[in-house]
Design a protein around this nucleic acid. Sequence first.
DNA 1: TGATTTAGTTAGCATAGCTAACTATATTCC
DNA 2: GGAATATAGTTAGCTATGCTAACTAAATCA
Lengths: 150, 150
Amino acid sequence: MTDVKSKRLAGPAVFQTADRLHSAAIHLLRRLRWRDRESGIGPAQLSALSVLVFGGPRSLGELADAEQVRPPTMSRIVTSLERAGLVRRSATEDGRRVRLEATARGTRILQEGRLRRVESLAQVLSSLPEEDRQRLAELADLLELVIRGL
Amino acid sequence: MTDVKSKRLAGPAVFQTADRLHSAAIHLLRRLRWRDRESGIGPAQLSALSVLVFGGPRSLGELADAEQVRPPTMSRIVTSLERAGLVRRSATEDGRRVRLEATARGTRILQEGRLRRVESLAQVLSSLPEEDRQRLAELADLLELVIRGL
DNA sequence: TGATTTAGTTAGCATAGCTAACTATATTCC
DNA sequence: GGAATATAGTTAGCTATGCTAACTAAATCA
């Protein structure tokens, strides 16, 4: 691949691995993107909704942090979700904060959308030998660890 | 649509792995995104430019296919790249087609940007034990295989 | 109480995705 | 040869997502 000469801390092998992981992430998401459109809900909305569905209710700022976006960005995403009836905003004791919670409809829509979204990926995985699937599962752990370290 | 299901649908374990890989890809790119901004060139432009730099000149349609986007989207991306002096449009024998080629400046900018982009990832990788780095390299192999299957 | 901090929103800008509709060139077919 | 069709790109216009700056409202601190 790219023989970018790196005279940095990271050696060439490490840099190449990083580059390949990065490239794989880009192309993986690009291939899955068309599936997103079927749900009629954008990827950022879907991702934010999944945090609320699987992680429980939280404030806007917390959700923005979880999604690694700025508050204004999340504010607009939540507005769209709310208009679509997938998320509910409610007041908290702290009058500045809002409590965001997925509605029943939001939960259902998410699960359907999420299913569709990773369906093609799961199908490819199914075609792999059990050994490879096992390894991918383990490596997903490792990758999550790496991401937390970023 | 793809009505493949040969034996059975993906089991829960496979589905969960697919979901986690998908989620990891999203968050990986999100974390690396701030690095993109330093180059002053958007991710789609960077990615398209990399195809031209590492894959050589090609037509707009071919580039759109490679990047999995529609021609109008690629047309606009190329316009931005051209305005920035990173890509050159030239005529071909077929008067309908354009030949797209990275300029010297485009090549340089890409390499610098790419380096910066994966630098933080490479740094995290550097801090891991050699065994884990080895496993992540395997993961990149597997992911590339999976992506080809998508 | 008044100043500061914190949470969220609004406004405005840019990138990037799409479809529909258009132009220009090539190809096909009578 | 010339009309009809097909192909390559562009333009226009919409939506979704990112950002920063500037604002409002509420809580906290001195």
